[in-house]
């Protein structure tokens, strides 16, 4: 999973861009993400349905992976069952 790779959810509209990657399988809405959407959408797992927000960067606890949400959807991103959380960025005053 290299930086710049685009992953699409099989279960919702979510799309992410890999900013920092690792050799892990990313899921969205409980289903594996891939380069393309499957012909038949996967069922959204109620345990992974908090939704994604455009422009948020999602990271895992261990800090291996950083994914930028470029299209929002209903599913939650996860790796090995761990739901990824949006990175809390310190709010900075605009400097340009």
């Amino acid at each position: 999973m290299k930086p710049g790779t685009r992953l699409k959810s099989a279960a919702c509209d979510t799309e992410v861009m890999v900013i920092r990657g690792a050799d892990v399988a990313v899921m969205c809405g409980g289903a594996p993400m891939g380069d393309a959407k499957p012909d038949a959408p996967a069922e959204l797992d109620a345990g992974f349905a908090e939704g994604t927000q455009m422009g948020k960067r999602y990271v895992d606890e261990a800090g291996r992976v950083e994914l930028l949400c470029v299209k929002a959807g209903k599913g939650s991103l996860s790796i090995d069952g761990e739901v990824l959380r949006p990175k809390e960025a310190k709010t900075l005053p605009s400097s340009d």
């Binding site: 900013i19 960025a89 900075l92």
Partner: peptide, 23 residues
């Protein structure tokens, strides 16, 4: 690209401006 993108992600929240904001 990685330098500039990292600067923007680190300092700017996506779509944080209201439609009336102008720079």
């Amino acid at each position: 690209h990685a330098n500039l993108a990292s600067y923007i992600f680190g300092t700017v929240e996506f779509c944080s401006a209201s439609p009336d904001d102008a720079v």
